[in-house]
């Protein structure tokens, strides 16, 4: 061991991708049984219990948990579903409320002490949700507009000069059937991934300079790290809500677009 490696071990090392490289829960556990999987199942259970206790025995004048859950319901109905689904809102509320609450809970777990891992920062989870919405979108489009009608309405919007369809139809196809579902999943994944990295970085700075290697020069840096961790946690809470909202909003938009062809 030479002087350089000793020095390297003493230096601050920013957290990297190893944050997301999670082994099975215990030695010999099935390879798929990891922390994010457990947290995803836990989120579903929490959501089921929440909705069950709120809506299984509803009162005309809501109190307690029903009151809180109804606020969530009203938010999803008025801000997410109605603008895109209009009269058909009530039919889709079950799905949209589930998507919104589940994604929000996945995200919130990222700042719950000890759990502290945003489920959606493993891209497999948002991919499954986005793919379900994507399949539903195509199924509904074909059911309500017919196979030919669906693709015709999507790729050949009326009112354009004939020759230009040749150039624009491929753009419509790529945009609607490949890029839209891709960005639907990636937007949620990337936000949660980056948020987790930022929080890990600042808390690492605070921990390293205040506890690991406390020096007169390093201490202020550590204090900045702690303050930034607190500030970024607040910001992250906002992003977590925003991303859950956007994920459900886009789901509502895709469903609405399949029910009614764009004119």
């Amino acid at each position: 061991m030479n002087a350089l490696t000793v020095l390297a071990a003493d230096e601050f090392k920013a957290p990297g991708l190893e944050l997301f490289d999670i082994p099975p829960l215990w030695d010999g556990a099935p390879y798929w049984l990891t922390k994010p999987v457990v947290l995803a199942v836990l989120s579903s259970l929490v959501m089921v219990v929440l909705c069950w206790s709120a809506f299984s025995n509803p009162k005309l004048v809501p109190r307690g948990i029903q009151n809180v859950a109804e606020m969530g319901y009203m938010f999803v109905r008025d801000q997410i579903a109605r603008p895109f689904l209009g009269k058909e809102t009530d039919r889709w509320m079950g799905l949209l409320l589930s998507i919104f609450l589940l994604v929000w809970m996945w995200n919130l777990i990222g700042v719950v002490p000890f759990l502290q891992f945003p489920v959606a920062s493993h891209i497999a989870f948002p991919i499954v949700l986005a793919a379900s919405v994507y399949l539903l979108k195509i199924y509904l489009g074909i059911k309500h507009q017919g196979v030919i009608g669906y693709f015709k309405n999507m790729m050949f919007p009326p009112g354009l000069p004939k020759f230009i369809y040749f150039l624009l139809a491929p753009i419509e196809f790529l945009s609607n059937l490949i890029i839209a579902p891709f960005t639907h999943a990636v937007r949620l994944f990337a936000n949660m991934f980056a948020g987790h990295m930022i929080l890990a970085f600042f808390s690492m700075v605070g921990f390293w300079f205040l506890f690991e290697k406390l020096t007169p020069l390093g201490a202020p840096v550590g204090v900045v790290g702690v303050l930034m961790t607190i500030a970024m946690t607040g910001f992250e809470l906002f992003i977590q809500f925003l991303q859950a909202f956007l994920f459900a909003l886009l789901a509502a938009m895709y469903i609405g677009g399949s029910l009614h062809p764009e004119h």
């Binding site: 603008p83 895109f84 419509e172 790529l174 945009s175 839209a180 960005t183 909003l249 886009l250 938009m253």
Partner: peptide, 16 residues
């Protein structure tokens, strides 16, 4: 709705 549709569609059209 038209506004939201347009706002969310533009990036994916331009990317496509």
């Amino acid at each position: 709705r038209d506004f939201a549709n347009a706002a969310w569609s533009i990036p994916s059209y331009v990317l496509a």
